[in-house]
């Protein structure tokens, strides 16, 4: 017993020595200060938005950094009403969910085929997908709009296939790297067990892709939820982000409502992050190792 205690003491002493050894401690302190400063820089605009969302417009104009003298909760009620919040929230939710599911399904299946069928054309198609990632959206914006119009895609549901098309290249790239790491024997074993290719993919391979699927889903949810330019072209005024545009214009500048509306629009995605952060970190790190 006493011997065990002695060993524990030794270990603890070593740890304390490591903690208190001055050059390492100083370095850690420096890193911590830098991290705190960075956190403050990143959080400051969000904090400013939150504080100003409870102030009146004149109060904001006079001193944007001051705390509110009286909590203007009516800002939220007005922003909710003026932006038609439930409708734009539902639209954004539908677009984000539909597009993300579409991207995950299409790109995982495409990447699977591109990895497992080692034809020359597979490599060419994969390269084409990769190249398309470097084409800026602004370059394809006008023809995309023209095509979407001719295909009657200028609707809430019509924007979903456009998002799927735009989101697939990066997702295929990520899935491609990950699927290469899935042992082929598992699929061969399933083939001998009697599974068809679809069953092999959905019952055996797809569950193994959970880490990268989480990463792909999270990246796309963040992108689609926050996207401004594409909905502006296709469905003006009908998503949460476009609704923010209402309060800042040529003839109107209502910072109080704008701030309250921004808090309203950001809160679902912040909530999503807080719930999913464990999976986000796990997903991103797993993707990094395998990809």
């Amino acid at each position: 017993m006493s011997r065990t205690n002695l060993q524990v003491d030794e270990v603890l002493q070593k740890r304390i020595q490591i903690k208190t050894s001055s050059p390492k401690r100083l370095a850690m302190l420096f890193v911590e200060i830098v991290m705190c400063a960075l956190a403050f820089i990143f959080l400051f605009p969000a904090l400013l938005t939150l504080v100003n969302s409870f102030k009146s417009h004149p109060e904001i104009v006079m001193n944007p950094f001051a705390l509110p003298t009286k909590l203007q909760l009516s800002n939220y009620a007005n922003a909710w009403r003026e932006t038609n919040f439930p409708v734009v929230l539902a639209n954004t939710f539908l677009i984000t969910l539909g597009s993300t599911i579409g991207i995950v399904l299409v790109s995982s299946m495409a990447a699977y085929v591109l990895v497992r069928f080692k034809w020359k054309i597979s490599w060419v198609i994969f390269l084409l997908f990769t190249f398309s990632m470097v084409v800026p959206f602004q370059a394809i914006m006008v023809p995309l709009f023209a095509n979407a119009k001719s295909l009657n895609l200028l609707t809430i549901l019509g924007i979903i296939p456009i998002y799927i098309g735009l989101g697939c290249p990066l997702a295929i790239f990520m899935y491609h790297g990950f699927i290469k790491g899935v042992p082929l024997e598992i699929e061969e074993s399933a083939a001998i067990d009697g599974a068809s290719m679809f069953r092999r993919f959905f019952q055996v391979v797809f569950p193994l892709l959970t880490p990268i699927t989480a990463t792909v889903a999270i990246l796309n949810v963040l992108w689609i939820w926050n996207d401004f330019l594409l909905p502006l072209l296709i469905i003006p005024g009908q998503t949460l982000q476009l609704a923010q545009y209402k309060f800042i214009g040529q003839f109107r500048q209502d910072y109080a409502l704008a701030m309250a509306s921004l808090v309203l629009s950001a809160s679902p995605i912040v909530l999503f992050y807080l719930i999913m952060q464990k999976y986000i970190i796990k997903g991103i790190s797993a993707g990094a190792v395998k990809g």
Binding site: P183, S189, I192, D193, T210
Partner: peptide, 29 residues
């Protein structure tokens, strides 16, 4: 195709389905 040959194969790296428990691994086929 392999599924119609009435064979069973044991692989070097076992090739178990990682997301299924032992029972379902064995019952899958």
């Amino acid at each position: 195709p392999p599924k119609d040959r009435d064979i069973a194969m044991v692989f070097q790296n076992y090739a178990l389905y990682p997301h299924m428990d032992v029972y379902n691994n064995m019952a899958f086929g």
